[in-house]
């Protein structure tokens, strides 16, 4: 039985994770502590939930860099609502609606005005952060107030069950749902088709504009979920909540085999990518390295991951081309032989 490419690609990420894990486990004494594993999962879940949303956008051939802004805006709103004593389901719902609306706005802008995703979401990211600034608590003179949430029910979202934070469970559930949608439903099929070849999908009757808007909406909603749980953990929201998370999530997805440009990758890959990125961050702090070297190390490991991805892509590309050429040649030979025979008769 042939092993699918997707599977091999995942083995690469998994392999890198195992290698890193082994290195850290042997060289950094505090790495294998239960608390550290819990902490890795918590941080990975924050990135990972955003990755779930980002993977929809990326597979559909887009990119969303406004995730940070959406997290900031929805997180601050969640913080305000929780502070005035709203029960957590209401807070979560409102935040998700806001996140989804932000995502919808992204998608609408991009499809309605035929804008470039990259620049558009970069810009809307600022806009959403601005909305966050508007929504944040201030006193009469306009001084920003750091607001500590006292709402016990809401703070429960940031707590853990035997050391495993609720956000981790949410992450796993969302990943499974995303995997199901992407691989088992018509919507998922159309997402891949759109990312792989948007024009032919359109010609096949896929409503590409609607699909694109919906992927951005999903991404926005996921960001809001991540934001709510993070705010609950940190007991407050602040202006640079979520800053840099957009890029982080995209990088994690790419490391996990979700292709920039669309059509390739899946939710499980994004899941692994998030773990990988967090692992790199977590492990490198253990060595007491100089700050500058921490950055070099972090960048180098991500580069290695992406290089192995590129190597793999080149390898499968060659394999595909070879297969296609072989098929071409076989067809041609058969045909010519048949024809030569027919001609001689």
């Amino acid at each position: 039985m042939k092993i699918s490419q997707k599977f091999i690609r995942k083995l690469i990420t998994l392999g890198l994770i195992v290698i890193l894990f082994a290195i850290f486990a042997f060289t950094a004494p505090s790495f294998l502590k239960l608390r550290n594993i819990q902490e890795i999962l918590r941080v990975a879940a924050y990135t990972g939930i955003i990755c779930v949303g980002s993977s929809f956008v990326l597979i559909g051939g887009g990119i969303d860099l406004s995730s940070g802004g959406i997290i900031c805006f929805s997180g601050i709103v969640a913080c305000r609502l929780a502070s005035i004593g709203m029960p957590w389901p209401v807070v979560l719902l409102v935040a998700v609606v806001i996140g989804a609306a932000c995502g919808y706005f992204n998608g609408w802008l991009i499809t309605r005005f035929y804008l470039n995703d990259f620049i558009t979401t970069l810009a809307t990211g600022f806009v959403f952060t601005g909305f966050g600034l508007l929504a944040i608590l201030k006193d009469e003179s306009g001084t920003l107030m750091s607001q500590e949430i006292k709402n016990k029910g809401f703070l429960l979202l940031g707590k853990h069950l035997n050391g495993f934070y609720y956000i981790v469970f949410v992450w796993i559930i969302l990943t499974v749902i995303a995997w199901f949608i992407l691989s088992q439903t018509r919507y998922g099929l159309h997402t891949y088709a759109m990312g792989s070849n948007s024009k032919s999908s359109e010609m096949s009757g896929v409503n590409v504009r609607k699909m694109k808007v919906s992927t951005f909406t999903i991404c926005g909603a996921c960001c809001a979920v991540a934001a709510v749980f993070t705010v609950a953990y940190q007991t407050t929201a602040y202006l640079n909540l979520g800053s840099g998370m957009g890029f982080n999530a995209v990088a994690a997805c790419v490391v996990g085999g979700v292709m920039l440009g669309g059509g390739k990758g899946d939710a499980v890959g994004a899941f692994l990518g998030a773990i990988f990125m967090t692992l790199v961050n977590n492990g490198m702090y253990k060595y007491g390295l100089d700050t500058s070297w921490q950055y070099v190390f972090q960048g180098a490991v991500i580069l290695i991951a992406i290089m192995s991805d590129a190597g793999f892509a080149a390898f499968t590309g060659r394999r595909l081309r070879a297969l296609a050429e072989k098929n071409n040649a076989e067809e041609a030979l058969l045909e010519a032989k048949a024809k030569a025979k027919g001609g001689n008769v």
Binding site: T185, R186, L189, A193, S196, N197, K199, M203, G263
Partner: peptide, 23 residues
Amino acid sequence: SLVPELTVTENIFLGHEIMKRGL
């Protein structure tokens, strides 16, 4: 106008898939 990442079947039914219980 085919989508290279999909199979023959998926390409042929792209846009008008046969659905059963929503899938």
